[in-house]
């Protein structure tokens, strides 16, 4: 195979947020393919993967949806452990759900530090009329915690693709940083799997 200097990334991205904000809807919309409807043969939508190719960098994105019901809240850490990215979803018509996002951010930063890329999604923008979370507040908050903010609608398929692309780029960047750092202090971060296609290729190039 030819040497392209291409790299394969494998990322885990978890969706968190209160119940009914639209996490499941967002993921389904994102992986849905209107031409190639796989869901006819399988009903499984709990573990979803998507392959991205961002300028030759290949990303294998595993998207982990979580159950947002309050009763399962305590299980969060089990799911977000080892994640490279998290999408924190709130419903723009529900002030409380935005508060929940803030709690999640705090928890994630505490548990995973800056190792994780964060994205905040204000979902259901098709219901702009009933908005209860101000755009300015939400964006200001996101900026303050180093997260990107996206306005999405699972119903209208708005902002979703952009959000995942941006998050992936963020994760690639972070992986690159880590990789550089790792080369210095030689500690390998488990959660980012950087796989070179061909061991021989690596030898030839030496670095990317």
């Amino acid at each position: 195979m030819a040497d392209s200097g291409g790299r394969n990334f494998s990322f885990k991205c978890v969706l968190l947020g209160e119940g009914c904000v639209g996490k499941t809807s967002l993921v389904l919309r994102y992986v849905e393919n209107k031409f190639n409807d796989k869901h006819i043969t399988t009903l499984q939508a709990s573990f979803l993967t998507k392959k991205l190719n961002i300028g030759g960098k290949r990303v294998n994105l595993s998207i982990w949806d979580t159950a947002g019901q309050e009763r399962f809240h305590a299980l969060g850490p089990i799911y977000y452990r080892d994640s490279n990215g998290a999408i924190l979803v709130y419903d723009i018509t529900d002030e409380d759900s935005f508060q929940k996002v803030k709690n999640w951010v705090k928890e994630l930063r505490k548990m995973l530090g800056n190792d994780i890329c964060l994205c905040i999604a204000g979902n259901k923008i098709d219901l702009e009329k009933e908005r209860h979370v101000s755009v300015a507040d939400a964006e200001a908050y996101a900026a303050s915690v180093g997260a990107k903010h996206f306005h999405t609608s699972a119903k209208l398929n708005k902002g979703i693709e952009e959000m995942f692309l941006d998050l992936s780029k963020g994760m690639i960047e972070k992986a690159g940083q880590d990789n550089n750092r790792n080369q210095k202090d030689s500690t390998n971060r488990k959660s980012v799997v950087v796989v070179d296609d061909d061991p021989s290729a690596q030898q030839k190039t030496g670095c990317c």
Partner: peptide, 19 residues
């Protein structure tokens, strides 16, 4: 995740989501 008989296949609500 086997499709459930006698239900509309397109019915996404019957998909096996994390919920």
């Amino acid at each position: 995740s086997t499709p459930i008989k006698n239900t509309n296949k397109k019915d996404q609500s019957l998909m096996l989501t994390t919920d």
